[in-house]
């Protein structure tokens, strides 16, 4: 491979990583917080067409309504869907254990600290294992990879890539696509319904690229899982009194 080719290849990879980072940032941002003025503006302008191409037709009221009203409306939908009691909890811990802030939450947080990030909440009631934050982490890893490539640090880039793929497979793949499906089915507003649907599709696409077919089938089963399956734990032995 010539140097030129390699350079072109790298440039392509950088571009791709940046694009992926952009998508995941968008998805993470959508799920993590209510839309604000700036985000709405982006949706109406820059993001409108690409989103439409990705299958997300933005609803009319979002595109044309007075922005204060639209934002208020979206905030209410967001709260009803993800925050208020009885909502679809966006936390891995709740999904896995039924309780907030349990072990999965610490586990996910560990991923962040290992990669050099620190979780800081903006509002109360937020935990590191929020779907949006986790997608944001994927985005951050993509852009970190791009940065490494730009620096020419292939080793670090590879490390980041491995971390991202492992994170996706171990922490995200097993539940987020299924969660997106159910959340989309009860979303009151078409914007969230479509964005959740998009998130599910993007993730699945991503997972199909990095997971071998067998693992993918497993993930597919996991996402359909009900009831939650227990894996045997190494603590089995102790618990039996020996």
């Amino acid at each position: 491979m010539t140097l030129e080719m390699k350079k072109a290849e790298t440039a392509k990879m950088i571009e791709e990583n940046r694009a992926q980072a952009g998508i995941f940032t968008l998805l993470g941002r959508t799920l993590e917080y209510e839309a604000d003025e700036a985000f709405l503006e982006l949706l109406r302008t820059t993001l409108r067409e690409p989103l439409a191409e990705a299958g997300v037709e933005l609803p009319d009221d979002l595109l044309h309504g007075p922005s204060a009203e639209v934002l208020e409306h979206l905030a209410v939908e967001f709260t009803g869907l993800f925050v208020a009691p009885g909502a679809i909890s966006p936390y891995a811990s709740v999904f896995e254990t039924g309780a907030m802030a349990q072990e999965p939450s610490s586990r996910v947080n560990h991923w962040y600290t290992e990669a050099g990030f620190e979780f800081r909440r903006m509002l109360s009631g937020e935990f590191p294992d929020h779907v949006g934050t986790m997608l944001g982490f994927v985005a951050a890893l993509y852009s970190a990879e791009a940065d490494c490539l730009e620096r020419g640090d292939d080793v670090a880039a590879e490390e980041t890539k491995v971390r991202r793929e492992r994170f996706l497979l171990e922490e995200v793949g097993g539940w987020v696509p299924g969660w997106c499906r159910i959340a989309a089915s009860v979303a009151g507003h078409p914007f969230y319904e479509r964005m959740l649907d998009l998130t599910g599709r993007v993730l699945w696409e991503e997972l199909s690229m990095i997971a071998p077919p067998r693992r993918l089938r497993e993930l597919s089963d996991l996402n359909a899982r009900r009831p939650a399956r227990l894996e045997s734990s190494p603590e089995f032995r102790k618990a039996s009194g020996l």
């Binding site: 254990t97 309780a99 227990l230």
Partner: peptide, 17 residues
Amino acid sequence: PNSRTRVKIGGVVDKCT
């Protein structure tokens, strides 16, 4: 039962210890 809150032991017989 396999569905439990916290302790990951399920699908086995249990009893008072």
